[in-house]
Simulated assay, not measured.
Amino acid sequence: MANASRQAAWEFWGTELKRRREDAGLTQEALGHAVFVSGGYIGQFEQAIRKPQLDVATRIDEVLQTDGFFERTWRKLIDDQRYPDYFAATAELEPLATKICEFESMIVPGLLQTAAYAQALTLANNPFATDAHIEKTVHARLDRAIILKQATQPLYWAVLHEAVLRVPVGGPDVMAEQLAHITRLARERRILVQILPFTAGACTLMGRMLTLMEFEDAPPTSYTEAVYSGNLLDDPAVVKRLQQDYDLLRAAALSPEASRALIESAAEDYRQCVSTT
């Protein structure tokens, strides 16, 4: 759904390029020569097969005298994109969902992260990132979490492996704040969280993550993620199988009350570490 809307926007970009090129009386080859690409590339831009670089979009504006139209549109579609391509479609679907169920085996899900935790995680993933990149990433993640504060919030259910509580992302103070944030959301009944303890042993989806989303007027979807890649799936048979996997995780997890107690205990352990340093 979201991928289709983004592709439609690029098709509009290409249609406008073709229209304005023809209005200027230029062939694809002539425009390509003027902006230092081949005529075939211009044709692929017009068909939304390829996406131009920013400098090409800027030169197109100069040649066609379009007052920055193609550069501004390019920035809207690419440069201002807050999420990686493989996750953008999922991020666009979250506010539309009536129910979101997540499983994480190592880190706190994005919708539950605090600013400090998100910052530490971003820096760990990219130690050479600029401050601007880190700030942009953190803000985008916090913006996503707004859906948990709205009156029309989706029903949100998370199953977290106990490892999520024990990996000290950002250090004890960051973890204490992060875990307190999760328990606060649970106590306010904005989310439901269960912990899958180490004692549960091997489990389905071990070492992986999963997001399941349901909608009012669309079929359910699932999202899984690997290294710099993601899969947004809506095949009914696949989603049904993943829903069964999630049910098995919930059955093996601690009750919500016992889970909250374990999270609070872990948060206290981190606070004790802070106070003794």
Rank of each mutant, 00 (worst) to 15 (best):
D85K: 13
Y41H: 13
V164R: 04
H133F: 13
E46D: 06
D131A: 15
L160P: 09
T98L: 00
F87K: 07
F87N: 05
F70V: 13
K136W: 03
I107A: 10
A145M: 11
N126C: 04
K136F: 06
L64D: 01
Q81H: 00
F70G: 10
R166I: 05
A151G: 10
V164N: 04
Y156A: 09
A118P: 11
F128A: 14
Q81K: 08
Q119H: 04
A124G: 12
A140D: 00
Y86L: 11
R144E: 00
F45E: 00
V159F: 07
D67G: 11
A129N: 07
T114A: 05
E62P: 07
L64K: 02
L165C: 11
W157T: 15
R82W: 00
G170A: 04
Q150D: 02
E71C: 09
L112K: 08
I49S: 07
Q65H: 13
A145K: 10
G43D: 10
V169E: 01
G171K: 01
A158T: 12
A97W: 02
D67A: 15
K76L: 12
L54K: 15
F128K: 15
H161T: 09
H139N: 15
R50D: 01
W74A: 10
Y41Q: 14
I147S: 03
T122E: 00
P154H: 03
Q47R: 12
R144M: 03
A57P: 05
D131N: 10
N126W: 00
T122R: 07
A124D: 07
I42K: 09
T137Y: 01
R141H: 10
V167H: 11
V167D: 04
W74Q: 08
Q119W: 01
P84W: 03
L111I: 13
A91M: 14
Y117N: 03
L142A: 06
G68V: 14
F87Y: 13
V174W: 02
R166P: 03
D143W: 07
A129V: 13
D61M: 12
I146L: 06
A163I: 06
E162W: 02
F45L: 14
G171M: 02
T114M: 04
A118T: 13
V63A: 07
A129F: 04
E135R: 15
D79I: 11
M175N: 10
G68K: 12
A151N: 05
H133C: 03
I107E: 00
E102C: 10
I134Q: 04
N126E: 00
P109E: 06
Q44V: 04
D67H: 15
D131K: 13
H133S: 15
N126G: 00
L96G: 02
L54G: 10
T114Y: 03
G68D: 08
Q81V: 00
A176M: 01
L148F: 02
A158N: 07
Q119P: 01
G171Y: 02
W157K: 12
P168D: 02
Y41T: 15
L142G: 07
R72A: 12
Q153D: 01
D143L: 14
H161W: 08
E162Q: 11
W74R: 09
A151M: 01
R166V: 04
R141C: 09
A176Y: 02
R166S: 09
